[in-house]
Simulated scan of single mutants.
Amino acid sequence: MHIMMSADWFYPSQMGGPSNGIYWQAKAMRQAGRQVTVVATSQDLPPTVPIDRWLEMDCGQVIYTKNPHFYLPFKHIWYAIGAIRKADVAHINSLFYPSSVLLVMAAQLLGKRIIWAPHGELSPSALSYRPRLKRLLLRLFRSISKGIVFHSTSLAETDHIRKHFGPNAAISEIENMMEMPPVVERKARNYLLFIGRLHPIKAIDHLIKALSESVIFRRSDFVLTIAGPDSDGYLQHLKTLAKSVNLAEKINFVGPVWGTEKEQLYADARITILPSHAENFGNVVIESLAQGTPVVASTGTPWQLLESEQAGSWVANTPNELRQVIEYYIQMPSETYHFYRKQATELAHRRFDIYANVAKWERFYEEVAR
């Protein structure tokens, strides 16, 4: 079987979870003996990565296309259509990236099987950005959706797809998985961690407001570390907010982190916090659990599992709810905290190791290809 995958961002780019998630998925399928081709843009790549030529990588053949503008992906479309011609299955990642709908239509004209993955773009919070344009595009998408299989990563995302594409939409629900990172030696430090793209949908402002209302946090040695790339100028908003609530000295903005530095940041933290208004999944949760660090995730994310597995907490992202749960972890007895860390590590490796669970993806592609 030959699988073609499109990606607007792709490893080693680190702009959001899908850049790594698509890579791990492609790599796992390649190791399972499938032929994989990836056509990506050159957005946010290190300067050492070759552009506009095919590369043989551990995830298959990959090309990073240099386009006139991110939203004018002419080369991306050209190379992707060429790759679709040779593939059995076209796996299109992203709904609203300009090339996606054109690639879906091209695959239909070429008689190919199609998987379309929204990656959280149908959540109410995501649709609140540029809503008029997205409503118009969704009408177009519905008109061409016959015969397409949608990939959902959670029950909530499945509901979002059915809401916009109807109760009879073909959907396969497979949670995100990842290549487990090497476990680093923990050097416990008194900080809470947010890591990810700095964007309003992440609700980091709610987290800062929660900490501003916590006498326990203010009087403690704990600080908040915020790591990740800025998006839409949100970083300056957060810095201004931190200063306005007199927390500038207790919040550290460290910018993007990668590799061993990122794993160490996870491992040393007391907890990782994902307060987002909406996430279709949230790879940072798995990354944190893999280093044994419990996670507090908002109810806008599909992470109820943290509660049942005693690997973290799942709470509303209101400042009051966040404040209470953060104080709980700051004051948690050592024995209880170490139990949570043990549960976190076990959960990550049992449920989310992509190589241990690659059979789920193999069955999915085989069913679509029939």
Rank of each mutant, 00 (worst) to 15 (best):
I3C: 00
P12I: 02
Q14K: 13
A26K: 01
A26S: 14
Q35R: 11
T41Q: 09
Q43F: 12
P46I: 05
P47T: 08
V49S: 05
P50R: 00
I51Y: 01
W54V: 03
D58V: 07
G60N: 06
V62M: 02
Y71Q: 10
L72Q: 07
P73H: 05
H76D: 09
I77Q: 02
I84T: 09
V89L: 11
N93Y: 01
N93M: 02
Y97D: 12
Y97A: 13
V104L: 13
M105S: 13
M105D: 11
Q108C: 08
L110M: 15
R113K: 15
R113T: 05
A117F: 09
A117W: 06
H119G: 04
G120I: 01
A126R: 09
S128G: 07
Y129F: 14
L136H: 11
F141N: 14
I144Y: 10
F150V: 05
S152E: 02
L155K: 12
A156Q: 10
K163F: 13
G166N: 05
A170W: 03
E173I: 11
E173R: 15
M180C: 05
P181I: 06
E185F: 08
R186I: 01
R186Y: 02
A188M: 08
R189Q: 15
N190R: 13
K202C: 08
H206F: 12
K209G: 06
V215K: 15
F217M: 01
V223I: 15
L224G: 09
T225C: 12
I226P: 07
G255W: 05
W258Y: 14
G259M: 05
N280E: 02
N280F: 00
G282L: 00
N283M: 12
A290C: 11
A290E: 12
T293F: 06
V295P: 10
E307N: 06
E307D: 10
S313G: 10
P319M: 02
E321Q: 09
R323L: 00
E327T: 00
E327C: 03
Y328L: 10
Y329L: 02
E346Y: 07
L347K: 04
L347G: 05
N357H: 06
A359K: 13
K360H: 11
W361I: 00
F364W: 04
E366W: 05
E366Q: 15
R370I: 11
